[in-house]
């Protein structure tokens, strides 16, 4: 590497939880994304580097990493944005998830909590029935629509301080999914979802600081959804429905 001005100093986490950083020098390119940098390292410098990606266009949610201390989707994050203009890039796996190796985390706890929050649809109709008509302008549908486009990237989960300190906390993504379901007219077990999202480790563990909302790459507002679940659960309690 001769021209340091056009070279990025990259520190990459290697190994498991007790691994360490390894330094690489990567040529700067215009419009380079963080994922481009990781791919360059794996293709040109060290083929043993473990990381995960699929779509490269912000759809699949598999490329989440900690970039200069911040959880991000790496395929849609430009190096300039991440470094704030410096030429040092520090890459670690997403926090609060078990590290498999290098930049790859084990997403199992994330998806297990998704299920624990009952973040799955329960149908009420069969193919013999007519389509369930939902008014797109109804407030509940609008609340669901505003929260529905989650790509399961785990960035909010890694950003959440409560997840980091309480292993039982279901986390913003799973609760955000539960929030879409309790607002979905087609959902067959809204009470069950609310109960699952309110039980121990559920919405009432959230302290509303909003780190999830701050970091969600698709600009969802999980913090608002969790607050909505808290309100619904209180209403249900006051109404004697829990």
């Amino acid at each position: 590497m001769s021209d340091t001005e056009n070279t990025l100093q990259v520190r990459v986490w290697r190994g498991g939880e007790d691994g360490k950083f390894q330094a690489f020098a990567v040529p700067r390119r215009e419009h380079q994304t963080v994922l481009d940098v990781v791919t360059y390292i794996q293709r040109e410098l060290d083929p043993t580097l473990a990381y995960r990606f699929a779509c490269r266009v912000g759809m699949c949610g598999s490329c989440g990493m900690t970039v200069n201390g911040r959880p991000r989707w790496t395929c849609r994050t430009h190096v300039d944005t991440a470094t704030g203009g410096s030429d040092v890039l520090e890459l670690e796996p997403l926090r609060s998830l078990p590290v498999i190796r290098d930049l790859a985390t084990d997403m199992t706890p994330f998806f297990e909590k998704w299920q624990k929050a009952q973040g799955r649809a329960t149908g009420t109709r069969s193919r013999a029935d007519d389509t369930h008509r939902v008014d797109p302008a109804s407030p509940r549908r609008q609340a669901a629509d505003a929260a529905i486009e989650c790509i399961n990237c785990g960035v909010c989960y890694a950003a959440c301080d409560v997840v980091a300190s309480d292993p039982d906390y279901l986390g913003p993504a799973a609760l955000n999914r539960a929030w879409t379901l309790v607002n979905d007219d087609r959902e067959g077990d809204r009470k069950g979802v609310l109960a699952a999202a309110t039980a121990g480790g559920g919405c009432h563990s959230c302290h509303s600081h909003g780190s999830c909302t701050e970091h969600c790459p698709v600009e969802l507002n999980p913090s608002a959804g969790v607050a909505g679940l808290k309100r619904l659960s209180l209403l249900a309690m006051v109404g004697g429905k829990v």
């Binding site: 691994g19 796996p93 926090r95 590290v99 302290h207 600081h209 909003g210 780190s211 701050e214 970091h215």
Partner: peptide, 16 residues
């Protein structure tokens, strides 16, 4: 060492 990092933003600073 891998560890929690602070990412400051308005909501966190308000809580602090």
């Amino acid at each position: 060492m891998l560890g929690p990092r602070s990412q400051h933003h308005a909501g966190r600073l308000a809580a602090r």
